[in-house]
Design a protein around this nucleic acid. Structure first.
Lengths: 241, 241
DNA sequence: TCAAAAGTGTTCGCTATACACCCATGG
DNA sequence: CCATGGGTGTATAGCGAACACTTTTGA
């Protein structure tokens, strides 16, 4: 960040932050990454000390190319998770005049999807913790609302984006995929219809991992067929669920 | 706005603006309200002088409750159009480090829908002008991109919001409504299917304006049935087109 | 008088949904 | 051995899409 000092303007300026809602999935539940505020931060962060909050922080006016870059940088600093700025999807701007008790702060909220199994090791357990979406405690600032909004944005985007494939490991089973869709959309699907529809889209390819599968008790493993998916998407299709 | 003076911070702060894409409909084409930049503005507005741009301006850190309030205030000041902050729907945040040549400026773009017939008289023709969406000239800053994004947001939201009824006059005809949907979605519909679907939703009520209508050449006039629409929406429905 | 605009109803095909049985494993 | 989990196919109903003719007015 720019050096601490004196920065003067003719009119008052707000501070701008980027916040991140990082969703993961452990095969059973949707999870969110939270940090505990103010444990080892500079003096400027004195509000809501000790409370849980979304990772995020101030825009570096001189270095951050966009607020998505701010989100990526702060996420890395605060949780150890290293994501590209491209993985952040904007949720919205939160600008209420009283949302931060210290000074006027406007935040741009983003969400990102990660493969929990692949990143869990990277998250710095000292500072950050994964919470089941249903068990998230009350958060600092207006982060409760931001979290709710991010979730409903995710719920909408599931029709247009390969959400399932960004959250699941490379290789997954149909029941896992279905369970994920059910968690996000908060509904239940018929097993057979779900399988039929997925099959019909031709975006899954079976993975042969050697295990003979004479029974049906061990589910079939699949991999996401990105090529077919992209083709489908280019042709103006959307996943109907 | 706050008095001009000296406002000092420990870290650099960006300026924040709100921009407005105001859509109208004249019965034939989608229209957008633009202003010509810098004709009678204060010194700080010296970029892109004389070019066309979206209405918008700086957040008043001390007075604007949210950036939507900024949008409403600036729209009023720049074009004479008086809309409530609630009528602005957020499009997104534009924060590229080089998007404004003067200093770091982050803008939050919004769009709003107006009944052109009812507001055209309020727009200050000295400063602002309505352009057909297809004939919009090249705009200042990244406003070209903002305009495109606002349009595609509108295109998506048409499925969830009574877009047609916010853009048309109180009383309108089926062909007008269809034409509007076709303009926004950039497709053509079958006249009969469109009528059937609309009828089926039961959100139109016929308006009897006295004219006897023996022929079929003069279209039937309708009014939007907000009550039924709200009921439909509460029941988790969406308009499929 | 002819072209253009608007109203109206039916058929067909597809897709979403509902639904039952079998097999294998693990407790 | 039984409960649980997972794989598979079919039949039906409802909805979206295609489609033609008649009337009137204005040029």
């Amino acid at each position: 960040m720019a050096k601490k000092g004196q920065y003067t303007y003719e009119y008052p300026h707000p501070a701008v932050t980027a916040d991140c809602v990082v969703f993961g999935y452990d095969g059973k539940e949707l999870k969110v990454l939270l940090i505990r505020r103010g444990l080892e931060k500079e003096a400027s962060t004195t509000a809501y000390v000790g409370e849980w909050a979304l990772p995020g922080g101030f825009l570096d006016v001189e270095k951050d190319r966009t607020v998505a870059h701010t989100a990526a940088r702060e996420l890395k600093e605060e949780t150890g998770l290293k994501l590209s700025y491209k993985e952040f999807k904007e949720v919205g701007t939160y600008s209420d005049i009283k949302r931060d008790p210290r000074e006027r702060v406007i935040t741009v909220a983003h969400y990102a999807l990660v493969k929990l199994s692949e990143v869990q090791a990277d998250t710095d357990a000292e500072k950050a913790e994964w919470f089941a979406f249903g068990d998230v405690p009350s958060l600092a600032f207006d982060h409760d609302k931001i979290l709710r909004d991010a979730f409903s944005r995710l719920k909408q985007n599931i029709h247009f984006e390969p959400v399932g494939f960004e959250l699941l490991p490379e290789v997954f089973t149909l029941p896992q995929l279905q369970n994920l869709y059910e968690s996000i959309l908060e509904v239940k699907f018929d097993r057979r219809n779900f399988a039929n529809k997925m099959k019909h889209y031709e975006i899954l390819s079976e993975v042969d991992d050697g295990t003979p599968r004479h029974g049906t008790r061990t589910p079939i493993k699949y991999r996401f067929d990105k090529e077919n998916y992209d083709r489908l998407k280019r042709s103006g299709f959307q996943l109907e669920f």
